[in-house]
Structures are given as structure tokens and as C-alpha cells.
């Protein structure tokens, strides 16, 4: 039982690593499908904008609200900006953006590639002389790697803006006080950390979505299963990778 499970997990990991390798090869060698890359930038980047804007906005607002109450106990209401920006930039921006993208993009990719597998479209691609990794996987992962950081910056900014709205109108702190406090909390290491992590998270989300999609078996039912698995696996992977990257950067910088 456990032996079987371990064997499957090992096989799965092996296949995943093989896909990552094939992706690397697909990036540096021809043929390269430019049009698909641009299409995916649009689908993954622009397509996720709304959900990321909403997430960032509400997160920033609730952060201001909660920290306002806590800080009031110490008479430090003017420090709200610090808390909002530090939490947004270091953790909540990257992680929440990645989780939203995992929910939206990993599932979409797994469903799309999964149904292409079960209807023989992937085989048709190969029969027509196209490597599915180059045509389908490379553009998606590239878009993930580059668009998740952009989306994260968007989420960070809109989160601070949301924090400002609550701080100024509800907590009655002066606008300049809030923004000064926001900037004060932004240490350069933290900003770097908040920018670097999303590159990895973007890669992890999309590569897992592609991997699960391409391994789909068992008809339309299999596609449903693949979609669910992709979201679960990508979300857990986001949190795990975020932890280990954070740990690694702490070791390297402090």
C-alpha cells in the first residue's frame, strides 16, 4: 500500500522533472512559437488582472482595519502604514496573488491540456510535427514566470492604496502620515524578496498545471479530476515553495 503510493509519487516527480527539463530545452532551442507566447501573456497576465486587483484591494483594506484596532491599544495608530506595507510586500502580496493565479490559471491549463489529451489533440499535434511541450507548455510557463511578478506588484500597490483608503477615511490618520509610514517600512531586502519570490511561484503554478493536464487519463471524468488536482497541488506548492524560499533568503541575507 504505502510502497505503491511511494512508487507512484516517485514516478510523478520524475515525470514532473522531465517536463521541467523539456521546458528548459524548449526555451533555448528552436522552434519557438512567438504567437502562442504573446497569447499566453494576455491570457495569464491580463486575464488575471481583475481578480488580483480585487484581492489586493480587500487585503490592504482589512489589514488597515485590523492593525488599526491592535495599534490603538498602544496609541500607535500612525504606524498602520508600516504594517500594511510590510505584510503586503513581504508575504501577502506574493502569496495571495500566487494562490489566486493557482486557482484561476492552474485549473484552466489543466482542464485545457487535459481535454486535449483525452480527445487525442495532443497526439494530433505530435502527428503534425509539433512538439506539444514547445507549443503549449513553454508559452504558458514563460507567461507564468513573467506575469506573476507583475501581478504581484499590482497587488502590492493596490493593497497599499486600499490601506490608505481605510486609514484616511475610517481611522482618520493624515494621508501624509500613512504614506510616510508605508515607505519607512520598505527595507530594500524585503522589496527584493517580495519581487524575487513570484518568479518562482509563477513557474511552480504553471508547470504543475501543465504537468497535471498532460498526465490526464480516463476521459472527461479524468479532466475533472485533473483540474481539481492541479489547483490543490499548485496551491500547496505555492505555500511550501514560499516557505522554503523565505527561509533560504533569510539564510543568505541576514
Amino acid at each position: 500500500m504505502i510502497e505503491q503510493w511511494l512508487k507512484n509519487a516517485f514516478l510523478e516527480l520524475q515525470e514532473y522533472l522531465r517536463l521541467c527539463l523539456a521546458f528548459a530545452r524548449g526555451v533555448v532551442t528552436r522552434p519557438f512559437y512567438h504567437r502562442d507566447v504573446i497569447e499566453q501573456f494576455d491570457a495569464i497576465g491580463v486575464g488575471s488582472l481583475t481578480v488580483v486587483l480585487l484581492t489586493g484591494m480587500f487585503t490592504g483594506m482589512v489589514l488597515a482595519l485590523q492593525s488599526g484596532v491592535t495599534l490603538d491599544q498602544f496609541g500607535a495608530r500612525s504606524m498602520v502604514g508600516r504594517l500594511v506595507s510590510a505584510s503586503m510586500v513581504k508575504e501577502l502580496g506574493p502569496v495571495l496573488t500566487a494562490l489566486m493565479v493557482a486557482g484561476r490559471v492552474a485549473s484552466g491549463i489543466a482542464a485545457e491540456l487535459g481535454s486535449m489529451v483525452v480527445t487525442d489533440q495532443i497526439n494530433a499535434l505530435r502527428a503534425l510535427g509539433t512538439d506539444p511541450v514547445r507549443k503549449l507548455v513553454v508559452p504558458r510557463i514563460l507567461a507564468g514566470i513573467l506575469m506573476v511578478p507583475v501581478l504581484t506588484v499590482v497587488a502590492d500597490s493596490i493593497g497599499m492604496l486600499g490601506g490608505a483608503i481605510i486609514t484616511v477615511w475610517q481611522l482618520r490618520v493624515a494621508r501624509s502620515v500613512y504614506w510616510n509610514s508605508v515607505v519607512e517600512a520598505l527595507y530594500i531586502e524585503d522589496v527584493w524578496m517580495g519581487i524575487i519570490k513570484p518568479f518562482f511561484l509563477g513557474f511552480v503554478i504553471v508547470s504543475i498545471g501543465c504537468h497535471v493536464g498532460l498526465r490526464t487519463r480516463g476521459g472527461t471524468q479524468g479532466v475533472g479530476r485533473a483540474t481539481t488536482n492541479a489547483v490543490v497541488a499548485a496551491s500547496v506548492a505555492v505555500l511550501a515553495v514560499d516557505f522554503f524560499l523565505t527561509k533560504l533568503m533569510f539564510v543568505m541575507w541576514y
Binding site: Y33, T119, Q121, L128, T130
Partner: peptide, 26 residues
Amino acid sequence: GMVFQEGALFDSLTVRENVGYKLFEE
């Protein structure tokens, strides 16, 4: 050339793009 059992047409592409796929992409 292969005609798959269920056709296996690319459902995100038009008939024109499906038929011309190989010539166009490869």
C-alpha cells in the same frame, strides 16, 4: 498523415487554421 478516430481537430482553431496547421506552423 493521420485521421484520428474522433477527428481530434484543435477546438480552439478555425477549420482554416486546423487544415493549414502543419503548413502554417511547421
